[in-house]
Computed example of a mutant assay.
Amino acid sequence: MLLIHDSTARGRTQTGWLDARHSFAFGSFADPKRPGFARLRVLNEDHIAPGAGFPAHDHADMDILTIVLSGAIAHEDNLGNRGITRAGEAQLMQAGAGIVHSERNPSETEPTHLLQIWLIPDRRGGVPGYAQAALPKGEAVLAGPGGLLPLGSDTRVTVLRPGEGAVTRLQATAPRKTFLHLVEGLAWLGQERLRGGDGVQLADEPAHDLHWHSDGFALLFDMP
């Protein structure tokens, strides 16, 4: 089955300091048709005002991958991990049996734009962890087996940076599942026009070719 996630149909949360779009059910966006997909539970696109952020809160049994598109995000947790992740970098927090952390925009003048991605690990519990890495400049695995950051499942998150005229082949052979999130760019999948914020969900599906009509930036999730 192939399903297009239209960026304009995403959920939205707006507060005084946060403007977030949700590809899957999250918070008050309780869409029963979008509970998540395979190991991908949350895919949020957040804009955070200068000096603002998420106060201390807890997580467990989740791998949380944050990709900073512009600005920066400062992380601090109860295990003593501290770090600032800047544009062009990613951080991974493996919540394990439980972790308490806060995240804020460290700049008093510049907003932060990021993607927050929650991936379900194979097992509950375990030792929490934190790591950072620079995003690959070309096509490469960012997280998962063979990647720069570890994951608690046989999931691979690959960074794609196709040029104008490139073709990306999408395929999901059971029992694997595939999700593509367009971060930037314009592409066509058959008669469907795709742009930044759109997603493509595939399960037990023959190959489809995504034709890029501009330079692009995308994340490809290959999941059990």
Rank of each mutant, 00 (worst) to 15 (best):
E110D: 10
A56K: 15
G27I: 10
T112R: 03
A72R: 12
E139Y: 01
E76C: 08
L115K: 04
A38G: 01
Q132K: 12
H101E: 03
I73D: 04
E76P: 14
G71Y: 00
H47R: 14
L65Y: 00
P106C: 09
A187L: 01
V157T: 01
I48T: 11
I4H: 07
G129S: 08
L202M: 13
A38N: 01
E76K: 09
P128D: 09
W118V: 02
H211G: 12
A95Q: 12
P35Q: 03
G83W: 06
L79E: 11
R169W: 09
N105D: 00
P111C: 11
A60V: 14
R193W: 05
S7G: 14
G144M: 02
S214C: 05
Q171E: 15
I64A: 12
A60I: 15
I64D: 04
A172C: 05
D19W: 03
G71N: 03
L65I: 01
T155V: 10
G185W: 05
P145R: 04
A9S: 12
G27L: 13
L43M: 12
F54V: 10
L202R: 02
I48Y: 06
G129K: 09
V100P: 06
E164S: 15
D61T: 10
L220R: 07
A203Q: 14
P136L: 00
R169C: 11
E89I: 06
G146P: 06
A174R: 13
I67P: 01
F221Y: 06
H22L: 14
V183C: 07
E103Y: 02
H75D: 08
E205C: 08
E139W: 07
D209Q: 06
E184V: 11
R156D: 02
A140D: 05
I99D: 08
W118N: 11
H75Y: 11
Q191F: 14
E205L: 14
A52E: 00
T158P: 00
D46P: 06
D31F: 07
A74P: 09
N81M: 08
E89V: 01
L119C: 05
G138L: 04
P128Q: 08
I73C: 08
R34W: 06
H211L: 15
F26Q: 02
L219R: 00
E103C: 06
A143N: 02
R12D: 11
A30R: 15
V157D: 05
F26V: 07
P121W: 12
E184A: 15
R195A: 14
M1W: 15
